[in-house]
């Protein structure tokens, strides 16, 4: 499986939800579960069927991840997109108050997203398929003026 590396940046106070770190380099597989399922990061005793065949050790939040499609059988796959990235960020990197980052399958209203310095509303929002080297910026507009 091939891996895609994406630079993720948080701003406008959103970085506070991600360990107060603004810039993250994330590596993800090029194909991911279509339902955005994220494997838990500490799987040793996990009963999640996703990881039933996995002997991989627990992973650092920012490290490379195993093929999430592994063991999924006939579950549907999709090319890595921003929606999957957001679910991944929420499950693996977010340290507090997840409701301030996401609402359902998208960002919370009031969070701006830029894909390679372009408003994500011009790039298909969550359906944008990520290429290697892309830069995705999340900025909260919700903090004081």
């Amino acid at each position: 499986m091939s891996t895609i590396t994406v630079k993720v940046e948080f701003g406008g106070g959103l970085e506070l939800l991600f360990g107060n770190k603004r810039v993250h380099s994330i590596s993800l597989p090029s194909f991911v579960p279509a339902d955005n399922t994220i494997a838990p990061s500490s799987p040793p005793n996990s009963e999640t069927p996703l990881l039933a065949e996995s002997d991989d050790p627990p992973l650092p939040a920012n490290g490379p991840i195993p093929d999430p499609m592994k063991g999924l059988g006939e579950m549907k796959a999709k090319p890595l997109d921003v929606q999957y990235l957001m679910h991944y960020l929420r499950s693996r990197l977010l340290t507090e108050r997840p409701e301030l980052f996401m609402d359902g399958d998208t960002v919370r209203p009031g969070v701006l997203v830029l894909i390679n310095d372009t408003d994500w509303e011009l790039e298909g929002e969550g359906t944008y398929e990520i290429s290697d080297g892309d830069e995705i910026v999340f900025i909260s507009t919700l903090h004081g003026g």
Binding site: G11, G12, G13, L16, G110, L112, L114, D117, D119, V137, I139, S140, T141, H143, G144
Partner: peptide, 21 residues
């Protein structure tokens, strides 16, 4: 619009403070 103000600050790389009270 707030969205445009934040985008303006982002593209102009203006130095602002964004911590919640």
């Amino acid at each position: 619009y707030e969205k445009e103000i934040v985008m303006y600050a982002y593209f102009k790389k203006l130095d602002y403070f964004s911590t919640e009270c």
